[in-house]
């Protein structure tokens, strides 16, 4: 069973994504801020990370920047799940190794599942 780490500070979104992913048959672990997220990336060894950007303690960009420094962690694919989607943010996230980007108001849970499936079905490099 593939393991997904959700890093999201908004409780209802966290709950919704967790339910969706669980019902799709994934194992889910969650973190409610950037610091906790970083800890779980190392300890939980997820196969994929769903990352919010604006969060307390450490924002999504800082999380990505730290993940980049770790040879093991940096191989884990990251999908940004954010309320914002400005071009400057998008290009910065790509530089920091984000695999995909999803603006919450423009996508729905089904599309998120599709993106996750696509990435996880790729052969591991």
């Amino acid at each position: 069973m593939k393991k997904i780490l959700i890093i999201e500070d908004e409780e209802i979104m966290l709950d919704l994504i967790r339910r969706k992913m669980t019902s799709e048959g994934y194992e889910v672990i969650v973190a409610r801020d950037g610091e906790e997220g970083l800890r779980l990336i190392k300890e939980g060894q997820p196969d994929l990370i769903l990352l919010d950007l604006i969060m307390p303690k450490k924002d999504g960009f800082s999380v990505m920047a730290e993940v980049q420094k770790d040879e093991v962690s940096k191989k884990i694919p990251i999908i940004i799940v954010s309320n914002s989607g400005q071009p400057v943010e998008l290009s910065r996230a790509k530089e920091l190794g984000a695999r995909d980007w999803l603006v919450k108001t423009e996508f729905d849970p089904r599309e998120l599942v599709e993106k996750v499936r696509n990435i996880l079905s790729e052969p591991i490099s």
Partner: peptide, 21 residues
């Protein structure tokens, strides 16, 4: 920005209920 956050939550909730999740 502030308005978008709850709207996303509503959107996703509705979608999941509609999907029978």
């Amino acid at each position: 920005h502030q308005l978008r956050t709850p709207l996303s939550a509503i959107k996703w909730s509705l979608m999941m209920i509609l999907d029978g999740d």
